[in-house]
Design a protein around this nucleic acid. Structure first.
Lengths: 339, 339
DNA sequence: ATTAGCACTCCGGGTCGGTGAGTGCCATGC
DNA sequence: GCATGGCACTCACCGACCCGGAGTGCTAAT
């Protein structure tokens, strides 16, 4: 049995179906691809592929459609890398380089990726937990409030307001600011508790409560679940014309509006740090995403990724192109953040 | 001619149509509303209303549907205010009060409003231009870069990185920071140029270039077009089941993804500061929004609004309820920001 | 192992009446 | 002069029906 040709047939089916969005039959298959055999032969192969679960027919006497398993095989073994053209690369780089601050970088990235893939793009902000601290700022507000501002080396800024019982002693704030910064600058979250503990000891007993509260806020902010921010763009691509997919658009939009779902989507793909991860159809846990695929990778950080970026579309998507785009944007994004 | 009854009929048509989403005929009208006359009479009134352009029929021998003009009349003269229940109010208040910083406040507001109205919600960040400055922070990064952080009294934070030609002189940064803050604290953008000018004079000539560059960055940031940030939530409500509206979903989503369009939508309604503004169907400039209505109002600031918040849905929406929700969220939002 | 031939299935689109909701108009009544 | 009952008319909608075409699976021949 010519196993090779069967895989060729599978590849051809996936490629045709992705392009035409219509079940593909044996005749058009031999016409459009140089398979060198007759439709009847293809039919036999198709029967075998169906038996093996790679393709299915929507109804008797219709062409074949790839199953999730078929797409899986396609991305794992059949699809070839599709490098971006060099003008494309330059355009990406330029567009991202014009960003003015982190919000802008993230915003531009997500729009760019959505534009490139013609799908929904998702970008996670650099994790606070895994970033290093660049600066801590304390700003007294009125008498009894203290604004704590945290700036990371990726440019991310978080702020929390602290309500105090008593007015702050004048001299404490500058000293605390100085010592805090000395203690945290350049360190990552995991390395923080001890230096902060040490630092607190340097203060007079009467100032300790304040110091501890500030330390507490900093630690909480960095550890909080809310630290994980995600942005999305390109939802309109879900309503691409000429697709029954629009029937399923509601649950998909709903899923995408739940930060929790998005985060799980991104973080569940965390194992494979260097490469690109692909989740196809039902491989996604969320029910609303059963007819979508998600392509993601990490960015920032050397070795361990700072955060993730991905693209979501119908299972019948251009995997090669999407993978290439996701990878490219992630690469330039990393470069910007490191620069 | 009983003009009053005609308006009653119009009101009845709008209310019925909003509820059922189906063209409403003369029979069901007299059945569902206590109009005290026969269908034939209603039919005469309907003919008059159609003549006047308030209603239309999709095709001969179908019921009537309100036109944009009909909705306009309805919101201007016919709809009654629908106050929120007091548990609802408490829930809103509580939900917003739990917010941890400005991003969180805005995020919660937009989600809340989308939840309340079951439509798309849009919230604009408090304008930098109209806010007062709370604090300016300068953080040296490496030798030749300076991070400028701007914090407003609404809690908004903006940051810009400044690339310098030469290493910064050690002593300049603390002094500049102190003087800058003295100059700007509590002032609004329009009041800034002069004090900043004054301040710069206090520095030695050799430090002037640096000082001027920092001043420049601050002023630019506050004046920039990109200062206007808008967030959106509830797009999934656009795909509400059982509506041909889903055919038009694409252009609407596209419009909503353009910051520019959103901003124009919000700012074009700026005249009426205290009340709620409603734009119906074709009154919206953007072509993709011809079948939607937008309800917006300002929030924050006394007198002049700091920013705007609104809700967008199909023209056949519950105007009274939407107006009430938008107003309520805006009110509590203002309160939080002032607190 | 491949292929030509063939019978079979079933989707999609088109046609065709029947039904019912809704209208417009007219003649009548208060 | 306004409201009303009656009535003919118009369409959209729905189900039944039919037909063509695409695609398959099977079998027999190479």
């Amino acid at each position: 049995m010519s196993d090779d040709r069967r895989l060729d047939v599978l590849r051809a089916i996936v490629e045709d179906y992705v392009q035409t969005q219509e079940p593909v039959g044996s005749r058009v298959l031999v016409e459009r691809h140089a398979l060198g055999v007759s439709p009847a032969t293809i039919r036999n192969d198709m029967a075998a592929l169906e038996e093996a679960g790679f393709i299915a027919q929507p109804h008797t006497s219709a062409g074949r459609v790839p199953t999730d398993k078929g797409y899986r095989m396609f991305v794992d073994r059949l699809s070839t890398i599709k490098p971006l053209s060099s003008p494309e690369r330059r355009a990406i780089q330029q567009f991202l380089a014009d960003a003015v601050d982190l919000d802008d970088v993230v915003d531009r990235s997500v729009r760019l990726l959505s534009q490139l893939t013609q799908q929904v793009a998702v970008v996670q902000y650099p994790s606070l937990r895994r970033s290093a601290l660049r600066h801590l700022e304390l700003v007294p507000v009125g008498d009894t409030r203290l604004l704590v501002v945290i700036i990371t080396d990726t440019g991310r800024v978080e702020q929390r307001t602290l309500e105090l019982d008593a007015p702050v002693a004048e001299h404490v704030v500058p000293e605390l600011r100085a010592r805090l910064n000395a203690a945290v600058a350049g360190r990552r979250l995991v390395d923080l508790p001890e230096p902060l503990e040490q630092m607190a000891l340097a203060f007079a007993a009467e100032d300790r409560p304040l110091v501890h509260r500030v330390v507490r806020v900093v630690e909480d902010t960095l550890a909080e679940a809310t630290e994980e921010r995600v942005v999305m763009a390109g939802a309109s691509h879900l309503a691409r014309s000429g697709t029954d997919f629009s029937l399923t658009i509601r649950p998909v939009l709903e899923a995408l509006e739940e930060q929790v779902v998005l985060l799980r989507l991104l973080t569940e793909m965390a194992e494979d740090t260097a490469g690109v991860t692909v989740r196809i159809g039902h491989e996604n846990q969320h029910a609303g995403l059963a007819e979508t695929s998600f392509v993601a990778t990490g960015y920032g950080g050397d070795g361990e990724a700072l955060a993730r970026i991905g693209s979501l579309g119908p299972t019948r998507m251009d995997y090669a192109g999407t993978i290439a785009s996701v990878r490219a944007v992630a690469r330039y994004l990393s470069r910007i953040l490191a620069g």
